[in-house]
Design a protein around this nucleic acid. Structure first.
Lengths: 344, 344
DNA sequence: CGGCTCTGTGCTAACGTTAGCATTGCTGTT
DNA sequence: AACAGCAATGCTAACGTTAGCACAGAGCCG
């Protein structure tokens, strides 16, 4: 690798002068600057950021720690972050945890060793103590999930309200036997979404038995397929189904198509997220649309401001984006059930 | 940040001893090792890789340079790479080019400045000269697209054969007016796919006018929508359509659903890639399935071997994965057209 | 013509880590 | 007793870059 020393030797000048010329220092004559730049370009010199960092310069890398990049939820976030950060000369280090705290810890150790400038993380359900320690030593931002022992900077969506709204939509159509399929309560998002489902039932005056919830790994398409099969084959099969994760929705849709379940006649369905394909699934999937892109952009801008501005504005920051129900054809009144007008 | 010096001072020993203890050097007594590890853990010491790299250690970061992570093609690749590399202690730096050579160059400059160990790249159509220079100074691996002035290590799919097969499938069903929608010929993949389409027609003895190709940005869903509209509204609308990119397929499917085009009665369609949603689109999308996951795994293993083994096996390496046609319901004989048996 | 400023450049130290060589006490051998 | 060998540790330099200070020469003023 070419260093400033190589350039200096070739031109018969000192490394200081080379360094200053490349930094466009006003004290260096234009002629010297020209010769240095010329030589640097010819020799293929590329500054060594590791060395620069040792002299106190900060890294231009931000770590993104997410469960799985294949989930379009997260790939959208990665894209928005990357785009916004590239414009300001920052790079993105991608770390996938697969929702495994051991993997999460290994990644955070690596990110710390590489002295990243900051970390944007979707934490696992219960991060390791060391993970928390490592994160707290860095500017960090939580995304979607919010863990109490981490910093109070958080961007997320209103999970409770989103699921409440989706469930209320079904209840308003007369459903009294509802199923919910989502992530475990150990995850803050899982807990909030389940609560939104349950609260909507309670608000409608329905008994607790009206809602049956199946909870499992939220990133597993396969689990979605299994769970919906179990739900429909069970003794009190629901007439309506609410979903609490994108991947589970994908699994459910595949399974329902394959099994030929008639939607909305036999079963009403409300999905989670709005993927390409949801609009053309069966009669069109009614689903909870989330402003992922806006959230990701906000997230990127916050981190960039935090890293480029002098006064470290570390005050608590929380941004909650509302979801919005996209009504398509997959929801209707239950075939043999109560009418939407349940005034009795 | 805690350094070895801090630990040394606290324990009243030298930095050398601390460094050796942490490296588990056999010359250091077990007792000292224990005390050093204890102190390091308590003080939250995290080794500084920048400093280590200055002493000649190589980076544990590999750059991944792709057009757009939202394309599930690429997110699958990123996932497989990340997973395989994490197991060996490597990290992934994600760079999106949006197929813009200026952005590509900026990213490669950053990756070089950060002294990444290697780069896996899906190059833009015509990378900048400096980009080529930067890449050639690093272990690098091309993915999908193959640029002649870069190294001869390449992982890709047999684009020509995949499109030839898809087109032949339609021709065998009796179609004589076919449309193709794909990326520009400037991209190696675009050129190969178009050629596969054209060669299939030629092999079937069809005249050149039998195939009409529309070429445009392969990563634009919106372009897919526009182009299919243009194609169907044109004077000699095709009875069958072959697609040459995942994103274009997504756009086409959305547009066809929305416009209520009857598939396969009015139009036969063969998609590209096999996304969730393709199976439940209309009558089920006949599509070109690609072994992305296997390819990505191979790619990761190659790079890991290249970076961890001593003899730099830089010989030319090419791995071509075949695609496979997944036949579903979106292809059939043209309604008013020639019969499959065109023996005349 | 001595001393001043100004311009352009060089010297040196420092960042955190590690490898090579030096040093200090021991123990065991002749 | 002298010395070799060994275990455990310390000292120093080096990696590439940059900031602070030093310095040489030129031009200018009194």
């Amino acid at each position: 690798m070419i260093t400033t020393k190589d350039i200096a030797e070739r031109l018969g000048i000192s490394v200081s002068t080379v360094g200053r010329a490349l930094a466009d220092d006003p004290r260096i004559s234009e002629e010297t600057k020209f010769r240095v730049r010329q030589a640097a370009s010819e020799m293929g010199y590329v500054g060594n950021r590791a060395a620069r960092m040792m002299r106190g310069a900060s890294s231009n890398v931000v770590g993104l720690v997410i469960p799985d990049i294949r989930n379009s939820f997260y790939s959208t976030i990665a894209h928005e972050l990357s785009k916004n950060m590239e414009a300001q000369g920052f790079q993105l280090m991608l770390s996938e945890t697969d929702d495994d705290r051991a993997v999460e810890l290994r990644h955070l150790r690596e990110l710390s060793a590489n002295r990243v400038a900051g970390v944007i993380i979707v934490p696992t359900a219960r991060p390791h103590t060391e993970s928390v320690k490592l994160l707290r030593a860095l500017p960090h931002l939580q995304l979607l999930r919010k863990h109490p022992s981490l910093g109070s900077q958080w961007f997320g969506v209103d999970d409770h309200e989103a699921l409440r709204q989706a469930t209320a939509h079904l209840v308003a159509q007369g459903h009294t036997r509802l199923g919910y399929l989502g992530g475990p309560v150990e995850l803050p998002t899982g807990a909030e979404r389940l609560k939104g489902f349950q609260d909507a039932l309670r608000e409608a005056g329905l008994p607790d038995e009206a809602g049956h919830a199946e909870l499992g790994p939220p990133s597993s398409v396969e689990y979605g397929r299994e769970a919906v099969r179990r739900l429909l084959d069970g003794p009190r099969a629901p007439t309506a189904l609410v979903l609490g994760s994108v991947q589970l929705t994908l699994g459910v849709l595949e399974e329902l198509s394959q099994e030929g379940v008639k939607v909305p006649e036999e079963l009403s369905v409300v999905g989670f997220g709005d993927e390409p394909g949801f609009s053309w699934w069966g009669p069109g999937l009614t689903t909870i649309g989330l402003p992922i892109q806006e959230m990701a952009t906000g997230c990127a801008l916050w981190m960039m401001r935090r890293l480029t501005q002098k006064p470290s504005n570390d005050g608590p920051y929380t941004s909650v984006s509302p979801g919005s129900l996209v009504v398509r054809g997959s929801t209707a009144a239950p075939s043999g059930g109560t009418s939407p007008d349940r005034s009795g």
